[in-house]
Design a binder for these strands. Structure first.
Lengths: 201, 201
DNA sequence: CCTACTTTAGCACAGTTGTGCTATAAACGC
DNA sequence: GCGTTTATAGCACAACTGTGCTAAAGTAGG
């Protein structure tokens, strides 16, 4: 029975089942049995696509980075460098349910990355990509002459990156307080202070 | 055999054993057995102090907030509002091993708070305290006239809070990249932009 | 039809888990 | 000394876990 559906798509479906279980019951409940049940498959069938649980979970984590990268790549060019930077950053914070799901799964795997070397490596890859996107956003403004000439791009990228990840954590832990509107306002304000100064708020 | 040691201190010791296990093996390995072994006690003895595992873990999470609050309360007054604000914020980020331990445990429990209502409630309490500290820092600068008069204190508190938690996450996940020096530099830079403008970096 | 291969299913086993339960030992009040 | 309380220990059980293993059912090429 080869190729009724693409095996790679099957793996993606199973990874999404992992996401569903993680969001509903937590990463500690993402057992082979629970994920298989969520996907409507048997345990043995799941293990035909992923030999071990570690492989399954790593693939599910990779998918977080893949989704975000695809979204950034699909971005339409914006009118100004400022608008481009702002929209780039907005693709990386949980403003809708899709990105909220990514953030929740990312947070669950982040905690595991503290003690699991494989998960840590994947997390660091995503971390570096996000950091790169932040550096890109800063450079966009700097190259357009919208920032002071002596701006420390590296330090600002670090600062912006921490801001984004902090917003993601707060958005999933306190969704009533840290709403999408609030997130966009914080990002806009941050870019404002990079350009014109702190007095515009 | 009452009171060979204070029972409350015993509970704190057990909570620290939880921290040790979490930092070494992860929250998913913080079982009653493993924590008891780490503390050098039997399973049954541990359960004399904590009736259930949930109670044990919640207490261990509470301890994170307690430690940070105690540290802030013990702060010596600084020379200027700016120095006070800066040192207050520095108490809340992982600049040494004690605070790094708190951040790692905090991160582990944060992820669990996504799906565990009890842990979520405790996390939100700590979240609100940290948010209050950020608001205090901003207000210190504003009241001293060090910021523009039209500064949106609430928005700035949200932004600063996200920055701090993001720095905490990055410091424990990327300790070689996000060093204590780097953290203090980012915080100083952030306060600079609140005061004088973005051009000083 | 028939062989080869892919996919699905399910059992089995050893290990870990939380918790209910009982039993021993130590320290106190008297 | 003695009973009461507190502390420590450990067993038992049912539930769940990851994975090794076997077997069936479906699909393709010949």
């Amino acid at each position: 029975m080869p190729r009724q559906v693409d095996p790679q798509q099957r793996r993606a479906e199973l990874a999404e089942a992992v996401w569903t279980v993680i969001r509903r019951d937590g990463l500690q409940r993402a057992s082979v049995r629970n994920v298989a049940r969520e996907a409507g498959l048997s345990m043995g069938s799941l293990r035909h696509y992923f030999a071990t649980q570690a492989e399954l979970l790593c693939f599910a984590m990779q998918l977080v980075g893949d989704r975000a990268r695809a979204r950034v790549r699909a971005m339409q060019p914006a009118a100004s460098p400022r608008a481009t930077a702002e929209r780039l950053l907005q693709e990386l914070v949980p403003l809708d349910d899709e990105r909220r799901a990514e953030s929740e799964v990312w947070l669950a795997f982040t905690a595991r990355g503290l003690v699991d070397p494989d998960q840590r490596a994947i997390h660091q890859g995503i971390h570096d990509q996000l950091r790169g996107a932040c550096a890109t956003a800063i450079t966009l403004l700097a190259d357009a002459g919208l920032t002071p000439a002596d701006l420390d791009v590296d330090l600002e990228a670090t600062r912006l990156h921490a801001l984004l990840d902090g917003l993601a954590v707060h958005a999933v832990m306190r969704p009533e307080q840290v709403t999408p509107d609030r997130i966009t306002a914080v990002i806009a304000r941050h870019l404002d202070t990079l350009q014109a100064g702190p007095g515009s708020g």
